[in-house]
C-alpha cells in the first residue's frame, strides 16, 4: 500500500510563508542594494521567482534572479549513475562584491548547498552569501545552516518532503511522504 501523504503547507500557507521570507531577505541585507537572488534547480528557481516578485513589488526595485544547477559539482557523481540530468545555470552577472541569496526548496544533508557554494565561487567573490529555504527538515551531514527558513520540520530519515510549485506541479504545497512500511 502506498504511504499516506500529509499536507504540511497548503497553497495559502506557502504564499504566507514566502511573503515573510521575502521581508526577511530585505531585513537581513538592510535593503536591496547589490542583491542577487539565485534559485537552485529545479524547484528553488520557482521559489526564487516568487521571492523576487514580492521584493520587487514592495520595494519598487528590479532584482536580478539567477539559476544554479549544481549537478556537475555533486560529491556523489562517481556513485550515482545513470547520469543525472543537468539543468540550466543562468548567472550572467559578475558576482564580485554582490550580495547573493541562494534559494532552495528543502535543506536536508547540506550537500547541495556545499556544491552551490563551490559553484558560486567559480563566478566571482560575492561580498556575502545567504541561504533561504522553504523547509529545513534537519538531518545535516555538513556544517551548513540557513539564514532564512520558511518552516522547520523534524522529518525522520527515509521519509520525504516534496515541495510542489504550480509552474511544474500544478499546485503550491509542501507534502510529507512517510517512509515505506510505516
Amino acid at each position: 500500500m502506498a504511504p499516506t501523504r500529509t499536507i504540511a503547507l497548503d497553497a495559502r500557507a506557502v504564499a504566507r510563508t514566502l511573503r515573510r521570507m521575502a521581508d526577511e531577505v530585505v531585513e537581513l541585507f538592510d535593503g536591496t542594494d547589490d542583491l542577487i537572488v539565485v534559485g537552485i534547480q529545479r524547484r528553488g528557481v520557482q521559489l526564487a521567482d516568487r521571492l523576487v516578485q514580492m521584493i520587487n513589488e514592495r520595494e519598487g526595485v528590479q532584482i536580478p534572479r539567477g539559476a544554479l544547477d549544481i549537478t556537475l559539482y555533486r560529491d556523489d557523481l562517481q556513485t550515482v549513475g545513470p547520469r543525472p540530468v543537468v539543468g540550466k545555470t543562468h548567472l550572467p552577472w559578475a558576482l564580485d562584491g554582490k550580495r547573493v541569496v541562494i534559494v532552495d526548496d528543502v535543506l536536508y544533508t547540506g550537500r547541495t548547498i556545499r556544491a552551490a557554494l563551490d559553484e558560486l565561487a567559480d563566478f566571482g567573490r560575492p561580498a556575502r552569501i545567504a541561504l533561504a529555504v522553504l523547509v529545513d527538515r534537519g538531518g545535516r551531514e555538513l556544517p551548513i545552516h540557513a539564514d532564512i527558513v520558511g518552516k522547520t520540520m523534524d522529518v525522520p530519515r527515509g521519509a520525504r518532503i516534496d515541495v510542489l510549485v504550480s509552474e511544474l506541479d500544478g499546485e503550491d504545497a509542501v507534502v510529507l511522504v512517510p517512509a515505506e512500511g510505516e
Binding site: L72, L77, V85, D122, F123
Partner: peptide
C-alpha cells in the same frame, strides 16, 4: 543533444571549468 545544452554555458564563464 539535451545534455549538451547546459554544457554550452560553461564555456561562457570566466572560469571555464567544473569539477565533474
Amino acid at each position: 543533444l539535451d545534455t549538451a545544452e547546459p554544457f554550452k554555458e560553461i564555456s561562457l564563464r570566466a572560469i571555464k571549468k567544473v569539477p565533474t
